[in-house]
Structures are given as C-alpha cells and as structure tokens.
Amino acid sequence: MERKRRLSQYLFAVLANAYFLFPWNGLIYQGGLKKVCFPGLNCYSCPAATMSCPLGALQNFFATLRPGLRMGLFQTGAYVIGSLGLVGSFMGRMPCGWICPFGLVQDLIYKLPVPKINLWKGLKMGPYIFLCAFVFVLPLFAVDEFGYGSTWFCKYICPAGSLEAGIPLLLMDKELRSAAGWLFVHKMTILAVFMIMFSIVSRPFCRVVCPLGALFGLFNRWSWLQLKFHPDRCLQCRACRTICPTDVSFYNGTDALNSGTCIRCLRCLSICPTGAVSIHFTPVLSGEKNEIKIC
C-alpha cells in the first residue's frame, strides 16, 4: 500500500509539473489545462506547472471581488470552491496523502536520519485559522482605495511558491534576480524554517498551516470515502498511532478516525494486524456496504 501511495505521489507530482519546455523558451505554461485547479499545493507560477493552484486562484477571486461586482461581473470563485468540494466530497483529505507534491516533499525530507519530535496537538487548528485569515478575510477586506485586495497567503506565507517558483525563476531570469528584495528574503526564511521542520516533524505544514488541507479536511466526516474503526478487533498495539504521519490517535478514542486531521494515507489500514480499520465508499452513510478490499 505504501509503495502504491508513493507511486501515486510521484505520478501526480510529474503530471502537475509536466511542462518541460520552460528552460528553452523561458515561459510558464499557458495552455488550456491552466483552467483546471490541481487538488494539491502546487504553485501555478512554477515554470513547469500544468495546472492552476486553487489557493492562489481563490485568493485572486476574493481580492478582485469588489471591483468585479461593481462592474457587474459574478466571478466569485464558485468554480474553485465547487471543484475542490467535489474532490473533497468524494475522498475528503485523501489528496493530501496521495496527490499533493508538497506533501511528497515533506515525506521525503522526513526520511532524513535526524532526531524526530512530536507536534503539540493544540496547533491542529492552525490550518483553519490560516484558511479563514489569509485566504478569505484578508484578501476580501484588506483592500486599497480601488477595492483591490492582495493574495496574502501566497505573498507572505506559502513556502511551496518559494520552492517551486521563486528559486527556479530567479535562477533563470536575471531581471527577476535584480528585483528581489526584503519580501524574497522573508519568503526564503520561511522556506528554510519549514525545510528544517520537515526533517524533524512529520508533515508539519499540513498539520499547522495548509489552508487547502483545512478545506479538504472539512469534508472528511461527510465524504463518500469513509474509514471505519472496529474496536472489537483492536489489540491496542498502537501500531496505527506509531505509523500515522499526522498523529491521529483513534484506537483509544482520543481522535475521531474521520477527523479533519487525517490525510487518509491509509497506512493505519495496511499496518493493522487484525483489520480493525476498514475503508468504505458510499454516497449514503450507513451499514457496511461497498467495503473496498485492500491487499
């Protein structure tokens, strides 16, 4: 199962960044696929990116909402919220575990043989705070005299943008290099802090910051894909807790199995020796129907 997940992560990372002509023509991809929001954190300014970043698009919609409405335009970002919601309503936060390229970066760096620490559980509300403040409230309400806001999360926080777009573009373009100032230093500092965190804490960005994960996490409880815990089969061996990248502790009732924290990597399901965790895919929440057999 873990090999399949890793393969899926690599596959989607390549698909989301499959424009390999950029070193020759010096342009970012401009084809029709950019109309599609990729269900993972992948900066659309990355020169190789083939799809759009839903967070960046959503912030842009909110930042330009007021002037747009004044001009009689109804471009409210419903398409971004709806398409993300469709993915979320089917599989909840599973894209975080199986699709997101930035999740893959975190998983790979965490493999470094350095001492590991646990994250304080109180930080689990962080992604919701970042989602509300930096994606909704600030772009919508912190506006200039013409009513235009800014993409606050992209501009001041997002380490994926610094890694996937900032570094390669500045390496490629002399003019961009000369334009880099304090904001670039600020973003590189954030990236460096996160890179260190990635090596000592499992998935710290997903658990503390990622607004996209928060958005998908809202659907975990109500998605078609549901995980089910069978306490009668549980040996309390804690294998699920030990292997969980987001430290979800459902075997003792501390956390709900389908809580917003779970990235649905399904490692608990594959490691459980007694099959105390099962997976279901059903549009109606009831019974044991449609159980998916995992081998």
Binding site: I28, Y29, Q30, G32, K34, K35, V36, C37, C43, Y44, S45, A49, M51, S52, C53, G56, A57, N60, F61, Q75, Y79, V80, S150, T151, C154, K155, C158, G161, S162, A165, G166, L169, L170, L176, A179, A180, G181, L183, F184, V185, H186, K187, M188
Partner: peptide, 16 residues
C-alpha cells in the same frame, strides 16, 4: 479567470 491567473506570472508567489 482561473486560466488568466494561472498564465500570469504571480510575483507575490515568488516573493517579489
């Protein structure tokens, strides 16, 4: 509009 955002180089994203 998503396409327009996606094909415009986001200077905020790269920190400029």
């Amino acid at each position: 509009e998503v396409w327009r955002y996606g094909v415009t180089l986001c200077l905020s994203c790269i920190g400029i």
